[in-house]
Design a protein around this nucleic acid. Structure first.
Lengths: 111, 111
DNA sequence: GACTTACGTCAGCGATCGCTTACACTTGCG
DNA sequence: CGCAAGTGTAAGCGATCGCTGACGTAAGTC
């Protein structure tokens, strides 16, 4: 999960992800969309693959890539939980903190 | 927007974001949740602030931080568009690519 | 004015990142 | 087998990252 977040933090990798979102594309074609060299894209593809956001299929000498729905679903689920959990699951902890902070403040005021 | 993505790619910053999600907290209290030094957290707070994900309010010597709803909304909107756009808006481009790829393939087969 | 509290900032360090160039590998074809 | 196409891998480089330790600063306390 952490790997997926790291992966999409990089603009070029997000672009790659969009390119292979629905249709699989060979590495060379993907690389041709960018100004950087082909090995650079190859490395980005590796990062995306290890993050589970992309999957590779071999066809002769070509390697076809496409977005991996499961990985994207995980990522999406994480964000939704990030929004919801932070509101609910961590409220008590935060309130305890707020309380602790107030106590410290009143300690300070009392002295 | 890019700054916001970069900001949440870092685990500690996500934790900070959760801490100040609903209640504002002074920098020192935030720092006390982590094993790294206070300056490190101060720097993380700066990144979050410059990404528009957090806002700062001063109260005496203390600086209170809390999540910035507008920034979070932007981030959320981006992800939703990322999911939707990639399915619809970029489909033609991807199909054109697929077509180009197929043409290349048949060129190759023909030779 | 001296001191304390609660911070941010700066310099520097090791680690990691994204990139390029050079090379290795695999598949298919004559 | 020899060769070309398509691609991954390795080494190395400059830039950036996250961190620490030392220092600077602004607001309250005596």
């Amino acid at each position: 999960m952490d790997a997926a977040l790291q992966a999409i933090a990089e603009p070029r990798r997000r672009e790659i992800l969009r390119l292979v979102w629905r249709n699989e594309l060979p590495a060379g074609v993907i690389a041709s969309h960018f100004s950087v060299t082909r090995p650079a894209i190859s490395q980005h593809l590796r990062v995306l693959k290890e993050a589970g956001l992309v999957e590779e299929r071999r066809d002769g000498t070509r390697r076809l890539y496409r977005a991996r729905p499961e990985g994207l679903a995980e990522l999406r689920a994480f964000f939704e939980s990030f929004w919801d959990d932070s509101l609910d699951r961590l409220r008590e902890a935060a309130e305890a903190e707020q309380e602790r902070m107030n106590r410290n403040a009143s300690d300070r005021d009392r002295n």
